[in-house]
Computed example of a mutant assay.
Amino acid sequence: MRLFVAVYPPPAVVAHLSARITELRIGEAAAAGVGVRLADPTQAHVTLAFLEPVAADRLEAVERSLDQAAWRFRDSGAAPPRLHLAGSGTFGQGRSTIVWVDLRGDVAELHLLGRLVRSRLRANHLCYDEKPLRPHLTVARPGARLPSAEVTADVAALQAYQGPQWRARELVLTRSHPGPRPSHERVAAWQL
């Protein structure tokens, strides 16, 4: 199974951002069928850890790890992080260009949660992508389908974006189903 651990913004927060994205070149290009892929708003999330492929018989260990991480987060006295989407950037270049929106607010608490998740996964001998946590929400995959100047202009326009505040109230284990129409399936969740 391909699994990841995430927090999900509420639908109203995602709708607010989606309305802004449709006004940009990446939104116009996607609507015109240019091949720019906008992230599916129903699957918008902030990833805390990507697990390496997990065998079905190890799912219980993953769930136990996340239960322990959520418990330790609550026990730390930290409140569910109050966040908002703001600012923007890109990862990759050329065909692999991704446009993302940054998170602001209680990001330190989100990093604490990410460290606890990764610590418990490691303690239970579960492998995950060890890249440093960079909380963000992916909004589009323009690749090389738009001139880089247009992507740069959209990123600059999103720098001024300020989304509504929300609290990350639960930690979610999600299964990813890759393919031409990738989808996500909620496996389990823990209250923060």
Rank of each mutant, 00 (worst) to 15 (best):
L3K: 00
F4G: 13
F4L: 07
Y8A: 13
P11A: 12
V13Y: 12
V14R: 04
H16Y: 13
L17T: 05
I21E: 09
G27N: 04
E28A: 14
A29F: 06
A31V: 03
A31F: 01
A31Y: 02
V36G: 03
L38D: 13
A39I: 06
D40K: 04
Q43C: 14
Q43V: 12
Q43E: 11
A49Q: 10
L51D: 14
E52Y: 09
V54Q: 07
A56N: 04
R58E: 15
R58S: 12
V62N: 10
V62F: 05
V62K: 04
S65D: 05
S65Q: 01
S65T: 03
W71F: 13
R74Q: 14
R74H: 04
A79W: 08
G92N: 11
Q93A: 14
Q93G: 15
G94E: 06
I98R: 06
I98W: 07
W100S: 07
W100K: 01
W100M: 02
D102G: 15
L103F: 07
D106L: 02
V107Q: 01
E109S: 05
L110I: 00
L113D: 08
R115S: 15
R118S: 11
L121Q: 04
N124Y: 02
N124I: 01
N124M: 03
H125N: 14
D129S: 10
E130T: 13
E130V: 13
L133E: 08
P135K: 01
P135F: 01
H136M: 08
T138Y: 06
V139T: 05
A140R: 04
R145E: 03
L146S: 02
P147W: 00
S148G: 12
A149Y: 11
E150F: 05
E150H: 05
A153L: 09
D154R: 02
A156I: 08
L158S: 07
Q159E: 15
Q159P: 10
Y161R: 02
Q162C: 10
G163V: 09
R167Q: 15
R167W: 01
R169V: 14
L171R: 05
L173F: 01
R175P: 09
P180A: 14
E185F: 08
E185C: 03
A188W: 00
A188S: 12
L192Y: 10
